[in-house]
């Protein structure tokens, strides 16, 4: 048994957890989420750098909330998501045991939220090289080129809402797109409605998104949707000094204000 499996067995046996959200290897060799509720299943657990998924999204599931004592395997993005979710009071009753691998590949189990928060702050990541490159490319474009770029991307969107489904911050029990009185976003997929959907999604996530990039990674048509919130977070940090997923005392930058907020465009 690996050290991870030993640790998890121990957590089950001393009653710290009664459900573990982790990864196992699927038949086609990719890591797939698994939900372990007893020691006999521990052997399938894996946790490698290829486990890129953000499991914190499952913390909103009724089945998970009911389990109360929940262990979760967390990569760095998942840790930030947990910090952000705690700051938004979303993990109420769940007694979380968060397990991560540090940069040396050693297992770390966080006993308290304070420890987790301190770890996150000490290991706060920069934007990935790939995203930086794309952001620079987009910023260097003229406005009309950007319009061309994004409308072409959005025209391919089929509204499968996978970007919403994988997002740990998209936890509303009913989403704006599901309302039809009024119908804010058309059900049919066409460029204008798709553009509105992605604008709305970004606006509702700006200042809350933890830059895990899952939405862009999993988009079946390959739209880099995560760039919208990456950009918004950059603005929010620059303008209002707020950093997402950094502290459990994070306020939400867009429901607070300072009388001295600066802008140049309001006449």
């Amino acid at each position: 048994m690996t050290s991870l499996q030993n640790k998890v067995t121990e957590l089950f046996e001393n009653g710290t957890i009664n459900l573990l959200i982790g990864f196992k290897e699927a038949i086609h060799k990719l890591p797939v989420p698994c939900f372990i509720d007893n020691v006999s299943q521990v052997e399938q657990l894996i946790f490698t750098p290829s486990c890129k998924g953000n499991l914190s999204v499952y913390l909103h599931k009724t089945e998970v909330k009911q389990a109360k004592k929940v262990g979760i395997l967390a990569n760095t993005a998942t840790l930030r998501a947990i910090v952000q979710l705690v700051s938004e009071n979303q993990l109420g009753d769940i007694e979380k045991t968060v397990i991560t691998l540090n940069t040396n590949g050693e297992l770390v189990v966080f006993a308290t939220m304070d420890e987790l928060e301190a770890y996150v702050q000490a290991n706060f990541p920069e934007l990935s090289e790939e995203d930086k490159k794309l952001l620079d490319q987009l910023n260097a474009m003229s406005r009309t080129e950007r319009w061309q770029y994004w409308t072409e991307q959005f025209s391919a969107c089929v509204k499968c809402y996978a970007c919403r489904a994988v997002c740990p911050m998209c936890y509303c029990s009913s989403c704006t797109v599901e309302g039809n009185q009024p119908q804010w976003i058309k059900v049919s997929s066409e460029t204008t409605g798709n553009l509105e959907w992605h604008t709305m999604r970004a606006m509702h996530l700006g200042g809350r998104c933890i830059n895990c990039g899952e939405c862009g990674r999993i988009c079946p048509v390959g739209i880099p949707v995560h760039m919208l919130t990456v950009k918004m977070n950059q603005d929010i940090e620059a303008e209002f000094g707020a950093k997402t997923g950094f502290s459990v005392k994070n306020g939400y930058a867009l429901n607070s204000f300072k009388p001295g907020d600066k802008e140049q465009f309001i006449k």
Binding site: R146, W150, E239, L254
Partner: peptide
């Protein structure tokens, strides 16, 4: 209006990023 101002700042910047006029 203070709350609105914050939202306008980021909304306008987001629109610009998407190439919206």
């Amino acid at each position: 209006n203070f709350h609105a101002r914050r939202r306008w700042i980021v909304f306008r910047s987001l629109l610009d990023f998407m190439g919206f006029d």
